[in-house]
Computed example of a mutant assay.
Amino acid sequence: MAVTTFGTRLREAMDRLGPLCVGIDPHPGLLDHWGLPHTAAGLETFALTCVEAFGGEVAVVKPQSAFFEQFGSAGVAVLERVLAGLRDSRTLSLLDAKRGDIGSTMAAYAAAYLSDTAPLRADAVTVSPYLGYGSLRPALDTALGTGRGVFVLALTSNPEGPTVQHAGGAGHSVAGGVVAGVTGDNAASAAARQLGSVGMVVGATVGDAVHDLGLDLAAANAPLLAPGLGAQGATAADLRRVFGGALPNVLASTSREVLSAGPDVAALRAAARRSADGLAGLLH
């Protein structure tokens, strides 16, 4: 039986619910804002409230793994419940783990997040290519086989990113090598006129970097996770400037702007809906 690709499922969700990815980022300031303790119990209340609010309401929900891991096994158990809850609500999950390694270790990460039986399985996971794009092959192949996706860091919005990602300059940059790898892995989907399942993370606040480095994001046929919306300051003009012809493939990511509406479930849901509705008009 043929497996429905992640790209196909993502496109359907974006068309139906809007191109929005809401993060579950229970950092200390938000726990305080919600009146919750900095404990595994506070984490659980926060995270499962988010699942209730966003399940079935937004295209993608993105738990940030580090905020769960910091509570040890109890936090990882909460993360398992979050991912299970998103599956139950038929909402695509993107686990923000930014894993990157080589050989059997990368294969183990792939099994942990992208296999059909893993307790921490998600619909997609973020990965880091800075041990070489080829080092991601175990994750890419596992995702292809199970109908899941990966989002590869390409041009991130942190100030340290350009020292690595821009290295080599236009036509030869590290980021360009990532884009080329993703383009190749999505070629079959492009030929079938379907959105690819290998995505990229490209910050909405990277300015002219895409143009200056000569990157063709549209040709990559990749879902483009775009952090930086809302609290980080990205505007509609920024999205057009950065993504150009690739705008229809952009999945804009926001966390604090929506999460600050909590802890009321209805208020969280309404904040997410406003963001999704606004993006739907902007990106299409």
Rank of each mutant, 00 (worst) to 15 (best):
Ser93Met: 03
Gly168Phe: 04
Arg9Val: 00
Ser115Ile: 05
Ala108Leu: 15
Val174Thr: 05
Val178Met: 03
Asp277Asn: 14
Cys21Glu: 08
Ser104Ile: 14
Ser157Val: 03
Gly245Thr: 03
Leu136Gln: 08
Arg193Gly: 15
Arg9Asn: 05
Arg137Asp: 09
Val76Pro: 11
Gly199Ala: 08
Ala108Ser: 14
Ala266Thr: 14
Ala280Leu: 10
Pro26Gly: 03
Ala252Val: 14
Ala84Asn: 03
Tyr130Ala: 11
Gly18Trp: 03
Gly203Leu: 09
Glu57Met: 05
Leu251Val: 11
Asn221Ile: 07
Asp264Ser: 12
Ser253Pro: 03
Leu86Trp: 02
Arg269Tyr: 10
Ser115Glu: 04
Glu80Asn: 00
Gly184Glu: 12
Val78Glu: 02
Asp141Trp: 09
His33Ala: 15
Val198Met: 09
Glu80Val: 04
Leu251Ser: 02
Ala226Tyr: 07
Leu140Glu: 14
Val210Phe: 06
Gly55Leu: 10
Ser255Trp: 10
Ala122Tyr: 06
Ala139Pro: 01
Ser135Pro: 06
Ser93Tyr: 00
Pro26Thr: 11
Ala111Gly: 15
Ala122Asp: 01
Leu195Ser: 11
Asp32Arg: 07
Val78Cys: 04
Val150Asp: 01
Val202Cys: 06
Asn186Ser: 08
Ala154His: 09
Val82Leu: 05
Pro129Arg: 01
Pro28Cys: 13
Thr254Leu: 15
Pro37Val: 10
Ala13Asn: 04
Arg240Asp: 15
Arg81Phe: 00
His33Cys: 07
Ala180Tyr: 00
Arg16Lys: 15
His33Tyr: 09
Ala276Thr: 10
Gly132Glu: 04
Ala143Cys: 12
Thr142Leu: 13
Gly171Asn: 06
Arg137Val: 11
Gly176Thr: 04
His172Met: 03
Gly196Tyr: 02
Leu155Asn: 00
Gly171Val: 04
Thr126Asn: 00
Ala77Ser: 15
Arg273Tyr: 12
Gly161Arg: 13
Ala222His: 11
Gly244Val: 05
Val78Ile: 00
Asp96Tyr: 03
Asp96Ile: 05
Ser173Glu: 10
Leu283Phe: 09
Leu94Arg: 01
Arg99Lys: 07
Arg90Lys: 15
Ala204Tyr: 13
Val152Ser: 08
Ala47Asp: 07
Ala222Asn: 06
Ala272Pro: 01
Ala13Glu: 02
Asp216Leu: 06
His211Ala: 14
Gly103Trp: 13
Leu114Cys: 10
Arg148Thr: 08
Asp212Val: 00
Arg11Lys: 15
Ala74Ser: 07
Gly228Arg: 01
Ala107Lys: 07
Ala267Val: 13
Gly199Leu: 01
Gly56Glu: 05
Leu36Ile: 06
